Computed example of a mutant assay.
Amino acid sequence: MSDFDLVRRRELLDEGFPLEVYYRQTPYSPETRAAFNRISDLHQEYRQLLPETVIARCPMTDRIVRWPLDTGGLDGWYWEYNNPVQRRPIGLPATWIALKGAVRVAEPAAIAPFDCRPGPGAPFVSAHLLAPPETRAVLAQIPIGTDISWAITYFAPKRPKDISLEDIWGQCRNPIFDPTSLDREYADQMPSRSADFELLPWLDAGKLLWIAPGDHTATLRTGAADCPYLDLDVDRRAQYIYNGEITRY
Results as ranks from 00 to 15, higher is better:
residue 26 T to L: 13
residue 26 T to M: 06
residue 26 T to S: 14
residue 26 T to R: 08
residue 27 P to Q: 13
residue 28 Y to E: 12
residue 28 Y to G: 12
residue 29 S to P: 06
residue 29 S to Q: 09
residue 30 P to S: 02
residue 30 P to I: 06
residue 30 P to C: 04
residue 30 P to T: 06
residue 30 P to Y: 04
residue 31 E to I: 03
residue 31 E to Y: 09
residue 31 E to T: 03
residue 32 T to A: 09
residue 32 T to P: 09
residue 32 T to E: 10
residue 33 R to I: 00
residue 33 R to Y: 04
residue 33 R to H: 09
residue 34 A to N: 13
residue 34 A to T: 14
residue 35 A to Y: 03
residue 35 A to N: 10
residue 35 A to M: 10
residue 35 A to T: 05
residue 35 A to C: 09
residue 35 A to W: 04
residue 35 A to V: 08
residue 36 F to P: 00
residue 36 F to R: 15
residue 36 F to N: 10
residue 36 F to H: 13
residue 37 N to D: 14
residue 38 R to Y: 06
residue 38 R to W: 05
residue 38 R to P: 07
residue 38 R to H: 11
residue 38 R to I: 04
residue 38 R to N: 10
residue 39 I to C: 08
residue 39 I to A: 09
residue 39 I to L: 15
residue 39 I to M: 14
residue 39 I to E: 08
residue 39 I to T: 07
residue 40 S to P: 01
residue 40 S to Y: 06
residue 40 S to W: 05
residue 40 S to F: 00
residue 41 D to L: 15
residue 41 D to M: 12
residue 41 D to W: 09
residue 42 L to N: 05
residue 42 L to C: 03
residue 42 L to M: 06
residue 43 H to N: 13
residue 43 H to C: 01
residue 43 H to L: 11
residue 43 H to E: 15
residue 43 H to V: 00
residue 44 Q to C: 08
residue 44 Q to S: 13
residue 45 E to G: 00
residue 45 E to M: 00
residue 45 E to D: 05
residue 45 E to S: 00
residue 45 E to W: 00
residue 45 E to Y: 00
residue 45 E to A: 06
residue 46 Y to V: 00
residue 46 Y to G: 01
residue 46 Y to H: 01
residue 46 Y to R: 01
residue 47 R to E: 03
residue 48 Q to P: 02
residue 48 Q to T: 04
residue 49 L to F: 05
residue 49 L to Q: 05
residue 49 L to K: 01
residue 49 L to Y: 05
residue 49 L to W: 02
residue 49 L to A: 10
residue 50 L to R: 05
residue 50 L to C: 02
residue 51 P to V: 07
residue 52 E to L: 15
residue 52 E to I: 02
residue 52 E to H: 15
residue 53 T to R: 11
residue 53 T to A: 08
residue 53 T to Y: 03
residue 53 T to Q: 12
residue 54 V to E: 05
residue 54 V to G: 15
residue 54 V to W: 02
residue 54 V to N: 02
residue 55 I to D: 08
residue 55 I to E: 08
residue 55 I to M: 09
residue 56 A to F: 13
residue 56 A to G: 10
residue 56 A to I: 12
residue 57 R to G: 07
residue 58 C to Q: 02
residue 58 C to H: 06
residue 58 C to K: 12
residue 58 C to W: 08
residue 58 C to F: 07
residue 58 C to D: 15
residue 59 P to W: 14
residue 59 P to L: 13
residue 59 P to Q: 11
residue 60 M to P: 00
residue 60 M to V: 08
residue 60 M to R: 10
residue 60 M to C: 02
